[in-house]
Amino acid sequence: MNIFRLAGDMTHLLSILVLLLKIYATKSCSGVSRKTQELYAIVFLARYLDLFTDFISVYNTFMKIVFIASSLAIVWCIRVHPMVKRSYDKDLDTFRHYLLVAASFLLALFLHEKFTFLEIFWAFSIYLEAVAILPQLVLLQRSGNVDNLTGQYVFFLGAYRGLYILNWIYRYLTEPRFTRWIACVSGVVQTALYADFFYYYFISWKNNSKLKLPA
């Protein structure tokens, strides 16, 4: 565990807390893509199947359970909670996310570390996580205006990915045998998807104005 990895995990946790806070405080999920949240729930459920087979550390197990529970809680809020559900605009959230699931699974069947159940689901979760933010980014671009908390949620999520890249560079330099191409290449693709968002986020921050994405 290095400082980049820890900072990455913490910003990831922070992004989820910001999202839960937004939903809890405003009793609304406007601007939040249910499809992205469902994809994250699938990502965590598929990746942390090893909860039952491998023990790495208390920290690792605890965080896995937090990520699974929080992602399911968010999906539950948007789908079931009567007030939150009402604020969900499904006409804006039209990304065909099942295509991402199908493509990621197909890719995992061909590109994986080992042909085992756990490894295929691990690779699937890595590929799906790389593209899971797409419905959210498309929704934000469509609606144009981004409220503060939703903007911060995406910002922290992007920061988490950036820090994980620094973590891999650090590990590559300090651990001679660190070469895990599936995670690293997917991670770079995932981070690149945030580039556009970050550009507008920093412009609005610099000008001290509301975050607006061009249509």
Binding site: H12, D50, D54, M63, F178, R180
Partner: peptide
Amino acid sequence: TNKDDVHDEL
């Protein structure tokens, strides 16, 4: 855990 393992990451 293996030094070259990313499975310890979240």
